[in-house]
Write a protein that binds this DNA or RNA. Structure first.
Lengths: 341, 341
DNA sequence: CCAAAAAATGTTATCAGTAACATTATTCAG
DNA sequence: CTGAATAATGTTACTGATAACATTTTTTGG
């Protein structure tokens, strides 16, 4: 391995001079700079970052902690984060928690021992607070993405979930739907809570009956959606909903699969809307009406906030960026309402 | 920051003893181990990995260089790689090259200066060779994923592209298609070449005319597919294909969009098959007949090969893992063949 | 042409661990 | 109970780069 001293010796200068050339710090005579640079080139020298980090206390690496890179929402978050990180001279470490608090904790410990200057964090749920406290103790900057965590006050980039829910709901209501089912996400995830609340508000605002039988707990998975619809199917006919609002796309897809299984047509028998969009690049016939999240922006802005924080260019006070969802109306919610009692 | 010497002082031992406790090396009396561990716990001590790396020359970080995490194929590659890396105590640095050789070169230099023990590498194209030579010079292990690079002999995980192509082609031919167009990928990417060759072989084997007008250069993008079909549309009727074999899904989707634009129906007017599958989790109505790649395996196995190589547990000789594609027949290729001259 | 200022370069110590060797404590056979 | 073997722990030096301070060289104004 070529070290800075090898370069120094060969160039006939001190290690410090080489260091100055590399970091463009201090004053260096043009001729020595050239000489040193030539030797660096010749010897194919690349500074050892471990040694650098040891003194500088920084690694130019960010950690990205998400539930699952395989979820299209997060692949775009990752891409946005990576792009911004790259722009600013940082790199990105990827981690999937699968929504598992223990994995999350493991990863955080990993990150603590690992060279990471800061962390982009999509929390598993409210109980991630304890894990985050570890970061706070160790004074590692982090930014929350998508989900906020009660009791944790930092920079965060979140979605206006209320707005998205409200607009989806009003879209359904405008179509004449009155019996709208809610497929909820886990109550300990902030986004799920916001969507739940906004669902209630929308129903109240339009003076629609809120039927507890139509509000089903789910877990943001296809299976959760499937099971929830099974429960809906056991309701008496006059309670059965004409529309479903699913708190995320997996719930919606599970729901649709179950409905189709049972011979229901969408949107003719039941309309379905949800949060999160499909992959726009490989889905030829997008079908779902959705509140699409600006996933790329989540990552991009998140990385920016984080790096500003790391480099002490951020104001003391935590910043909260709230992004607007985009409502995309598609076939799954476009049909005359049947079965209006 | 708590250092090993802080622990040592508080525990009344030397730094070396603490080091031994942490690394479970050498002989330590049970009582001192307990004592030291207690202090470590109390002080919330986490070893500084920069200092560690400085002597150990390893960082337990792998680089993952892919064209675009946003491509569903690679999100699953990334997930597979991350899972395996995690299992083996490594982490993953993510990078998107967008198929740009310069970005690729930049990233590699980045990686060289960065703590990375090895690299999972999806090459941009054959000219990535130069970039890879840099890695070889610096003696950094890497594994090629998906695309091989002529002149580079290392561990690689690739797909049996010939088999996939052949099976898709025979499927079309069995349906009675004789005029099958080929939407190629770039000729300087190994996978595109293999698919091209296998297309020719399949045509020859079944004694079908190979019409150069039906073989269109593309670039693995939707627009490439779109443009290619525009050229097909300018052919005389008796040359127009009854089926299209697209070398990847983006070409296929671009092609379908163009065809639908022009009022063609798929598969009734033209059948379409391609490599790569849609996102199975959010696409409600998968439509395309495809040769699906075991993307997760790419990453998982690739990471394994790489780590074995890093830890000198691999045989000297480069290993080549060839994975089999899975043919999934769907609507896009299922219709009686019209227009058979 | 000289002294003071500025520029250029060098020396030493340090970052947080750990390898290599050194020392002290303990065990155990005879 | 002794000395050799082994276990337990400590010291010192080193990893590669850089901060802080020191020294030498060059520039510049009077």
């Amino acid at each position: 391995m070529v070290t800075i001293r090898d370069i120094a010796k060969k160039a006939g200068v001190s290690a410090m001079t080489v260091s100055r050339v590399i970091n463009q710090s201090g004053n260096i005579k043009e001729s020595t700079r050239k000489k040193v640079e030539k030797v660096i080139q010749e010897m194919n020298y690349i500074p050892n970052s471990a040694a650098r980090s040891l003194t500088s206390k920084e690694t130019k690496i960010l950690g990205l902690l998400i539930t699952d890179i395989t979820n299209p929402l997060f692949t775009h978050v990752a891409r946005g984060a990576e792009d911004k990180a790259r722009e600013m001279g940082y790199r990105l470490l990827l981690s999937n928690t699968d929504g598992d608090l223990h994995k999350e904790a493991d990863y955080l410990k990993f990150f603590l021992s690992t060279p990471v200057d800061g962390i982009l964090f999509e929390a598993c749920n409210d109980r991630s607070k304890e894990n985050l406290n570890l970061l706070i103790e160790h004074d590692i900057p982090f930014v929350l993405l998508d989900r906020s965590v009660p009791g944790i006050h930092t920079d965060q980039v979140i979605l206006d979930n209320r707005k998205g829910t409200f607009e989806l709901m009003e879209h359904l209501i405008k179509q004449g739907h009155k019996k709208i089912a809610l497929l909820q996400g886990p109550a300990d995830i902030s986004t799920a809570r916001s969507r739940h609340e906004a669902y209630m508000k929308a129903m109240e605002k339009h003076a629609l009956d809120i039927n507890p039988h139509l509000m089903l707990a789910g877990d943001f998975t296809q299976n959760g959606g499937f099971q929830a619809v099974l429960r809906l199917l056991s309701l008496p006919d006059d309670e059965f909903p004409t529309a479903i609002f699913a708190a995320n796309i997996f719930l919606a897809i599970g729901a649709i699969k179950c409905l189709r299984n049972q011979g229901y047509h969408i949107p003719d028998d039941v309309a379905v809307v949800c949060f999160d969009d499909v992959d726009p690049f490989t889905d030829l016939d997008p079908f779902l009406t959705v509140a699409a999240q600006p996933a790329y922006q989540f990552g991009y802005i998140g990385a920016q906030l984080l790096i500003e924080r790391i480099e002490n260019k951020a104001p003391q006070k935590p910043r909260e960026v709230i992004l607007a969802p985009e409502i995309i109306i598609r076939k799954s919610s476009l049909a005359p309402v049947r079965n209006v009692n």
